[in-house]
Structure formats: structure tokens, C-alpha cells
Nucleic acid binder design. Sequence first.
DNA 1: TTGTACGCGTTATCAG
DNA 2: CTGATAACGCGTACAA
Lengths: 341, 341
Amino acid sequence: MNTINLPTLDDVARLAGVSTATVSRCLNLPAQVRDSTKLRVEAAIADLGYTPHFGGMALASNRTNTVGAIIPTMESAIFARGLQFLQEELSLSGITLLVATSQYDPEKEAQQIRALLGRGVDGLVLIGQERPEETYEFLKARRVPFVLMWTSAPNSPYCNVGFDNHQAAYDMAMHVIGHGHRHIAMIGGITKGNDRASERIHGVSDAMKQHGLTLQPPYLVEAKYTIEQGKTAARQLLRLDPPPTAIICGNDVQAAGALKAVRDAGLTVPDDVSVVGFDDIDLAEAVEPGLTTVHVPHRRMGREAARLIIKMARDRAPAQNISIDTKIVERSSLRDISGQS
Amino acid sequence: MNTINLPTLDDVARLAGVSTATVSRCLNLPAQVRDSTKLRVEAAIADLGYTPHFGGMALASNRTNTVGAIIPTMESAIFARGLQFLQEELSLSGITLLVATSQYDPEKEAQQIRALLGRGVDGLVLIGQERPEETYEFLKARRVPFVLMWTSAPNSPYCNVGFDNHQAAYDMAMHVIGHGHRHIAMIGGITKGNDRASERIHGVSDAMKQHGLTLQPPYLVEAKYTIEQGKTAARQLLRLDPPPTAIICGNDVQAAGALKAVRDAGLTVPDDVSVVGFDDIDLAEAVEPGLTTVHVPHRRMGREAARLIIKMARDRAPAQNISIDTKIVERSSLRDISGQS
DNA sequence: TTGTACGCGTTATCAG
DNA sequence: CTGATAACGCGTACAA
């Protein structure tokens, strides 16, 4: 009993001299109400500053016009943009987005799924595909519509809206190799429970194999997606003999850290070492030199995911897989060394 | 009717062979329940994977353990960190944070306040003090506990948790002047409806006055908090005659843009022009050269705000004002030019 | 076109 | 310590 009671449907009905059913209809099925009464009701609503009580609505209708998203973390900006677009598109349909985080922990993700379902979300948006089978079974048993973002899986029975992390990383590695690099190192994300991180590493590794190169520790190191960890990892790589001529990073934040490590070592990007990123967040452009990186289709991904989850929740449409192409954004952190010995 | 029905209190009660009241008590007042029955109930809960239905709880108890925050925007990272800490501290008390955005529009803010109240939030967190009197009256009439962040106002009747934007900007300007700068320009935020932006500008202006300097267009320009707009604004400033030797920015994002503009003009920071920011978000450190900027106490601000809103909502504690000091973080974008003519 | 009446899942009051 | 039972605000058959 914290705030003074908000006005209820009943209050509006009384003031307008109609029944609560009519008020409810004005809100939900305006076509069924005579214009003159509608006007009276609307006046009453405005007068009282009435807002529907969410709990009541949820209880009575068993739907909330709410979609829940569970992302690994809010700390870095990685997921922020995609979510922003998801949210924009959802709000176009009057749907609210509830965001929760899992800290890259499958257990916590399962908890959050339950909590969001308790809040009555009509659908869920999750990141990636790697999670315990029980979680999928739970979702199936409850018939919760859900879409997985940030991955692509054309043949998956689940709804994926995203891009092919393996392919994108493979392309980037090919690009780097095409610039004459042979001593290539990689700072990847923590792969445990993170399929995007693993796929990116495998993509790079596969491209290198194609050219008779191998990617393995100590030239491959896993680090968290922070500037600090990127910097630490890069510092180690620069001390190796022979040192890499190019460092491929699992994301832009790590790459920004790598840039700092190179500078601290008294070297220059891209003259002494090339550094490339992944994600194309704002940071990639703000940093000096600008990062050559993989552009992730945040906008399309967010929008398509929104449209799909709405279709699935509202019309019970079947799952569908949408794969969006990535592309490499050339800035100035990658140098061509083909001409050199 | 989107998902298969979740298990209810009733299901748990039946399975455990007790009444719904007992199950409810197990959850809310465990002390009042005999251990043996508690065990049975807990087993049933685990067995069914029961999660309380939020709407039902809200309806019956008129409480939600939910706090709403309305921030101007999610696009830049400005508010992200503060919110992160707010959220962490709240979750320590089992409270969920719901975030909405107003796009710097007072009208939209009022709407969101209504929407969040409809969702039954126990309290609100808002940014800044500048908003229509009606909004304050509405909040007062409904007796909603609320705290204003990102500002400080020792004598305000409302609860403020933040820092003195005017003072912080004043200090920064004094700092810049202390480094020998006399031709100082400023890229401020859009002041309309944004008291933080106005105060920062006034703070700088007042410090300059103190030294017989004036801040006015075209040396003062308002721009949105984006890299792009910061860059555009800085480009204009650099074309002025005489050009500024230092550019004070309303926030770090603008400063990052200014850095780019300087570089594009073939000049160097800080040798040719000094640039300083405000906020001390990650970007300030990632950028080259690192930004000398005003460190905003995100952590303490978030935590204190959380504690206060909890006290106000739970114990009906009175409003209280908390002002936290800012400090200047020296990196390398500000140069001392005292020795020069 | 409008009104009546019931039920959604939970908490809280009151008896036992 | 536990059980019945009445709210809570709303949507929606069904009836008028």
C-alpha cells in the first residue's frame, strides 16, 4: 500500500455513467462502442488520469503485451544497439520489452526465464543457441514462443534471427590473410557457454588452416570482453617470438584494449601490428586508428526478431530462421604487408 | 492464452496437501510455518517448477517489489553505468528495476510515469529536476516515492541523489584556465528541458567570467550527445578566428567526436588544441589521447539512490538529499600552455 | 450497443 | 500453526 490508489475501471465507469464492461471495450474493442458513449468514457479517463492496472489486465486476459529478453550482460555496449532496435520495433506494436541479464550463466538464464514468465511475458528473446537441453524442454513444454538472436542456424527447429558467426570470422581471417599476414594471433571471448565466441574462433582457425597456418595457444588466448582484458591479452601476444603481425579480436572492446597495449609497447597500429575487431559498435569508430571490423547487422537483426516474436506470440506463427549477412568495415587498423619479406 | 498455463499456488497446495494460504506463507512469512510442512511445500514447488504469478501478486498485495526508472535515452552509455549500479543494489533487496526512456521529452516522461505506475512500481527514479510542475503535482497527489538522480539540490523538498553539475563544470573550466588557456570554446548538450546541460554550460561560463573571459556563440554551441554531432560542432569551432586553444565538452561522447574533428583538420590534441570531456565513461579511456574529464560518481550515485528509494518505499522514510563530489580525471587531452605567448 | 457476473492467482483477515 | 474466504482490477461470455 505504497501509493494512493490509482483510479480503476470502476471509477471511470461510474464517472461516465456506464458499466465497466463498456469502459473495457472502449479500450480494447473501440469499434463496438457507440461514438457518443465512447466520448463520455474518454473524457472520464482523461479526467481521472486513468491508466489500466497491469496486474489486473494480465490476470484477466492472460496476456501482457510484454516480451522479455535475456542478454548475457549490459556492461559492454555489445547488445545495447540490437536491443534498442528490437525495442523500437516492438513499441510500434504497443509491446513493452523487459530486459534481464544472465551473466553468461545458463543456470541464471533459466531462473530469469521463469521470472519473466511469472511476469507474464508473451514471448522471449534469448541470445545464442548454447544452453542446457532442459531449458529447451521447459520452453517447449510451456509452449513459450521464443527467438534466438545473434546466431544463425538455417536448419534449427528453433527460431534464429542473426548472422553466421563462424562465416563472419572466417571472412575476416581471409581478409587479414589477403593482406599478407601469416603470423596471426587471436584474442577470443570466453568460449564456455558462449557459442558465438567459439564459432568466431573456429572461423578464424578454419580460414588459417586453409592457408596452411595454425591457430593455437599461446597465439590464441581467451579473454573477457573488456578493454582491460583485451589490453592484457594483447600485451602477452606482443611478447611472443615471433610476434604476430596481426591480432584478430573477438570483439571491438577487446580490440580497443589491444590498441592500447600496442601503443604502450611503443609500437604503432597498423604500421607495426594490425588489429581487427568484431561487432562494429560506436567504439570502433571513436578509437584511433578506426577499427577495421565485422559489421554486425544490429538494426535488421533487432527489427526482424521483433517482427517474428510478435507473429509467433500473436498468431502462433511457426518458427522461422532468418540469417543476415555481415560485412567487413574497412577503417585503418589493418595494413597490407604483401609487398614485404 | 499464449503459453501453457504455469502451475499456480493452488497446484502447489494440492500437491503438498495444504491450503493455498499456507503455501503463500511459506513464500512470504516462512517463520510462521512449521518446518515439516514447509519442507513438503518446498518439495512441491520444486517439483512443479512453480514461479509466483506476478500479476496475481500485484493485484492482491498492491506491491510489486519493482522500481521504475525513466532515463532520457539508452543510446549513449551515459546513464548505463549509473543504472547498472542502481540495479545491482536494488536486486540485493530482491527488487526489480524496470527501465523506460523519455527521449528528453517531458510529455513522454509523464506518460511513462503513468505506465510504470500502472505496472505497479513501488517507486520511481527520474533524471534531473527540470520538468513541468504538473508532473510533480501528480507524483505528490499519488504519493509515489521518487528520487531524482544526476543532480544535487541540498534544499530541494524532493529527494536528489547526485552531484553538482554547475560546480563540476566550473571546476573543470578553472582547471583549463589554470593551464593557461584563454581562448576557450564549449560544446554543450541541448539545454532545452535538460538542467544538467544548462548547468554545465553556466558553470563553465561563470568560471570564465571570473577571469574576465566570456563564453558565447559562436564559441558556445549546443549539440546532441553523439560522436557525429560532437565532430560537426568541433569542426565549426576550429574554423573560428581566433580558434580556441581548448574545447570543453558537455560530455565524453561529444569530446570523442571533437577529437576526430581535430585530427581531420590536420591538428593534434593536445599540442594544437586541448579537448576535455565530462562523465568519465569507458570511452574516455579508450580514445587517443585519453580524455581529461570530469569523473561522475556513477557507483555511489546508483547505490545511494537504490538505498534511498527502498527506504522511502518500504518504510515511508522522508526525502533526503545526497550530494556526491566529482573529481577531475587527468589523462592527456589537456595541455598546459602557460609558458607560451 | 450495453450490462451482469464470473474467474484469473495471489494476499490478508479471521476463525479454528 | 493452518484453513476458508473475501478482496484486488480487469476481460469476456452471455444475456438483454
